[in-house]
Design a protein around this nucleic acid. Structure first.
Lengths: 228, 228
DNA sequence: CCTACCGATCGGTAGG
DNA sequence: CCTACCGATCGGTAGG
């Protein structure tokens, strides 16, 4: 991370034959600094909006120069991608682990919903950035990230289906809307939740779980739901 | 519709007309032009993101000069505000009208949910712009718009409460999270719904209504979930 | 790891 | 002297 070309001995030195000679040690705190930038950037982008947040102001918020950020990331988009990739990868793993728990379907679904909200706790910024800026990424980057989202949706979908298998085998077209309803409830949470309020994340996880588990049996089977 | 500046059947195309000899009147189509700009802008801001959408490109999409847009609106922010104010005012009126219907609480809630989704049908662009850009408006403008949102939330909240008054008087702190859950489901809809799919807006309205009306009685009052 | 810059483009406004 | 507009360009600032 710090190059000192002027101080380096010339190629005439005896070690020159071996090429680079001494291996440049990668700074011990390289990774730590990169991660610090990543986290600060997520917060900064979330607070100001990705487009309005300039790299210069971000550098200021990080307490480093703009050039340093460009030392770690080749572009603003690359920084955004790393934020979202790190976030969604962790999230997909959490969700799939919770979905693989051996328990009753009810307990597993409740645990999964709880796990998502807990995972969101320390990722409000990343979550917001995702909603704000994911679609401004180049298509191939988007494809990769949306695949991670799809893993989450798939795991949730299976857990929901397992709670009422007969109903969803009778009305399979209901599974996707119900799954998306759950994500709607969860992904909307950060917009109205105020820490310290009467309903914390665990309490809200139970509300969501109760609504879906209590509501699915009430889904009207009789009425022909809107086939176009 | 507005993307092709060559053949515009629109109200904005009077520019090229000869019309010599005609006295300049106060444009009869002034209001029509303003509304055309408003609608095109909503679509354009939704598609490209408010910050990335330049006034120049918007003018191009409208088939007019940038200066003409500034003739109607003093600033980009003023245009954004008019989009959101028009949208949210109409929405608040729709919601309050549906909430005032005389019917059983169940029918009223179902009708309200349906009314919101139908109102969203022709306002996907405005809805998206709201989520994308409302918070970038100056504070006083935000305050005015958030008051409109609060009217919607209030009407929905009352309709939900009326379905299970005893439960919510026993656990009043549940009303807000349940209300927000419903808006989460509704406001998330546009992100996954594809027109022509198996579940259209009316069908989804019924799903949401069933989930909340079936789910609220299942909300656990104590510690363990009360599913019967 | 910074200062010094660039090509381009931004939102907004001039004269006529 | 007005309203309704356009071609051209302003001073600043963006990402890099």
């Amino acid at each position: 991370m710090w190059c000192a070309p002027k101080a380096r001995p010339s190629a005439l030195s005896t070690t020159g034959k071996r090429g680079e000679g001494m291996a440049r040690t990668i700074a011990k705190d390289h990774e730590a600094k990169r991660e610090a930038i990543l986290q600060t950037a997520a917060r900064f982008f979330a607070d100001h909006g990705f487009d309005r947040a300039s790299m210069g102001k971000l550098a200021e918020a990080c307490g480093v120069s703009k050039a340093l950020i460009y030392h770690y990331y080749p572009s603003k988009d690359a920084l955004l991608f790393d934020i979202l990739d790190t976030h969604l990868t962790a999230l997909a793993e959490v969700v799939e682990a919770a979905a693989a728990q051996s328990a009753t379907p009810q307990e597993r679904l409740r645990g999964l919903i709880r796990a998502v909200l807990i995972a969101y706790r320390d990722s409000d910024a990343e979550h917001k950035v995702q909603l704000d800026a994911l679609s401004s990424l180049p298509e191939d980057k988007q494809t990769h990230l949306r695949a991670l989202q799809r893993r989450m949706v798939g795991a949730m979908s299976e857990c929901i289906e397992a709670v009422e298998p007969e109903r969803f085998s009778a009305r399979p077209e209901l599974l996707r809307p119900v799954t998306m309803s759950v994500f709607g409830m969860l992904n909307w949470f950060y917009l109205w939740h105020r820490p310290g309020g009467a309903v914390d994340r665990d309490a809200y996880a139970d509300i969501v779980a109760d609504l879906v588990m209590g509501g699915v049996p009430a889904l009207c089977v009789g009425e022909a739901g809107g086939l176009e």
